[in-house]
């Protein structure tokens, strides 16, 4: 027996229609079905946040969402963050502030950071640390990650002022 369900999921702006097993996890749909390997599987137990993507505009841990639960939804992965060939301010800031070492946690950190900046464009250091509590990093000690998110927030603010 293999229970298959049709899903239609918009991923990074493109509609993807597939027949999937009901038990297929969203992270495997993205990585294995669509070849979007930016989001990682770190813990597979909803702790580390490496699998974080946006589901209808909100950060979720895709190792704990079934692909069928995302039927009809809009998913954005790290691959969908850059617009027209230019990096998202968070991607720029992680680069500039050395917000990564091995890079394993980075896609999830950036997606969690992007979720925060949408809700709170001008976060304090505490706000940033709290918003990233569901994302674990084995390398950096978090310091530069927090700096990068704050720098991206400032870049976003000055861009708004300039616009």
């Amino acid at each position: 027996m293999s229970v298959r369900v049709s899903v239609s999921i918009t991923v990074n702006g493109e509609i993807k229609e597939r027949e999937v097993e009901s038990r297929l996890l969203l992270i495997h749909f993205l990585r294995d079905e669509l070849g979007l390997t930016g989001a990682h599987v770190g813990c597979d137990t909803t702790n580390c946040g490496a699998c974080t993507c946006h589901l209808d505009g909100e950060a979720v841990k895709t190792c704990t969402v079934l692909a069928v639960q995302a039927d009809g939804s809009d998913i954005v992965t790290i691959e969908g963050l850059a617009q027209n060939g230019s990096l998202h301010p968070l991607q720029e800031a992680f680069w500039e502030h050395h917000g990564l070492q091995c890079g394993y946690c980075t896609p999830g950190m950036i997606m969690a950071g992007a979720d925060l900046l949408k809700r709170n464009p001008d976060p304090s250091e505490d706000d940033v640390r709290e918003a990233l509590e569901g994302s674990l990093c084995r390398c950096t000690g978090y310091h530069n990650i927090v700096k990068a998110v704050q720098a991206a927030a400032q870049a976003g603010q000055s861009r708004e002022v300039a616009a």
């Binding site: 909803t46 946040g49 974080t52 589901l55 909100e58 950060a59 979720v60 841990k61 704990t64 969402v65 969690a112 979720d115 925060l116 918003a131 509590e133 569901g134 994302s135």
Partner: peptide, 9 residues
Amino acid sequence: IADRQVRHR
């Protein structure tokens, strides 16, 4: 509860 990602679900 937990973290923001978990609280979204």
